[in-house]
Design a protein around this nucleic acid. Structure first.
Length: 152
DNA sequence: GCCAACGTTGGC
DNA sequence: GCCAACGTTGGC
């Protein structure tokens, strides 16, 4: 059982989209970074906790809690020529990009990025590191517990 | 819109 | 295999 922070642009997939999706579940499409893909492929398990983070928006921060609800499978958007996530170098036989399904758990009053930065307990969080661009980052159990008990 | 930081590409 | 150039991310 692990914990993760997963970034999403709320214009594309917000915590509200997730809450109102069928089965309150969305496939986490669009990961096009090998490190993030490998986290999903090698480390994620069904039931892992997810901090649902809104990025590239007026109020970046943690917007809710979710859970990994499937094992990895090929991201269908890599084969869709009309998708912005289309990848001509990928093939059905050897799909390059993978995803997991994520299921809604809870919406939170937004915990802004600035608030996360205020707490020394969270200073090592990958998402707070300068220049971090990884859309999926591991969260320690201590960080998870701090955020879900002290900041909500 | 700016720009720092990072990942990827491609020439050599 | 190196590394400069380029593209992207994402906070501000």
């Amino acid at each position: 059982m692990r914990y993760w922070l997963m970034k999403s642009e709320p214009d594309e997939a917000s915590i509200d989209h997730l809450a109102h999706a069928p089965h309150r579940t969305l496939p986490w499409t669009g990961v096009r970074n090998y490190q993030a893909r490998n986290f999903m492929r090698d480390m994620m398990q069904v039931g892992d906790g997810v901090l649902f983070y809104h990025s590239s928006c007026p109020e970046p921060g943690i917007a809710g809690l979710a859970e990994v609800s499937s094992t990895v499978y090929p991201d269908p958007t890599q084969f869709d020529k009309k998708s912005p996530y289309y990848d001509a170098k990928s093939s059905q036989e050897t799909p390059r990009w993978l995803l997991v399904d994520v299921v809604f758990k809870k919406k939170l009053p937004l915990i802004p990025l600035a608030t996360l930065r205020e707490h020394p307990e969270l200073q090592d969080m990958r998402v707070l590191a300068k220049g971090n661009r990884l859309s999926i980052t591991p969260v320690t159990e201590a960080e998870w517990r701090f955020i879900t008990t002290r900041l909500v």
